[in-house]
Amino acid sequence: MTEQEFLEYVQSGGQVETDDWMPDDYRAKLVKFIEMHGNSELMGVLPEREWILRAPTLQRKLALTAKVQDEVGHAQLIYRVVEDLGKPREQCLEDLISGKSKFHNVFHYPTETWGDVGVIAWLVDAAAIISQKALLKCSYAPYARIMKKICWEESFHILHGRDVILTMMNGADEQRELVQEALNRWWAPLMQFHGNPISPADDPMFQWRIKSQGNEEARQQFLDGYVPQIWELGLIVPDPKLGKNDEGVWEYTEPDWAELKHVVTGHGPQTAERLELRKTTRAETEWVRRTVLAEAA
């Protein structure tokens, strides 16, 4: 098979298994994309983890712990896929900590209040599930397969998030304010989440059918699904230009793409602190991996 034949094969819906021949560029792109997904799951743990100790009821404590557990589980599944493509998990973690590889923009921001916990579980996970559902059709079959489990588990997170938000919106004025303030904080990162509106034709991840939808398509789907749900609660989306035009397309204030780039290249408000936490906890448990895993290496 030539590279061109391979390209035609994946573009016509063909799927690839681990041991199949694949062009080097395809393998490299796969590793980069999937590794960033794994990094994001692992770093996505940190903004919520801080609130596990502060969850205000036993039910919330259990649900939040389970959500974070799912995310760690996803990181495990995803790094296994990367490992089978040739990059060991330990190397992925090293590259993450050293800032060589990236993770999603939303996980570079602080979690200020319990309102943020609700907004993250509801809207950040909603944005994520849209990207992840599109990966169910990924040309790399082992990745597409684990996405089924991941999407299934993410659906619980949205339920949990919505329940947290609805409970607060039905509560005291202070609780409603917590939600509105959190929405104000998270809106810009959410609008940047699916990336700048690069045309699918120019997106190598789309050309190789690693992704099956364009960035703007994903953002439109997010707005279509969730803006009405936000509005119906009496919450205000902090974008005066937001609205659907006559053609059914959502219009909005241009997201700050420079901020997105700045943040994902390691300059977000929490980037340094979170990577430092990963680095120190990893160093402190190094002896465990050495003792327990070395003989099984």
């Binding site: 692992l42 743990v45 940190l46 983890r49 596990i52 100790l53 404590k61 712990t65 389970a66 974070v68 557990q69 995310e71 760690v72 589980g73 990181a75 495990q76 790094y79 998990r89 936490l277 990963r278 906890t281 448990t285 465990v288 991996r289 327990v292 895993l293």
Partner: peptide, 20 residues
């Protein structure tokens, strides 16, 4: 639960979280 997300390795993290 303070271990959730930072256990020595990922599989253990998931298992220990179930215990929590």
């Amino acid at each position: 639960s303070e271990w959730t997300g930072i256990a020595p390795f990922l599989e253990e993290d998931v298992a220990f979280s179930s215990i929590v």
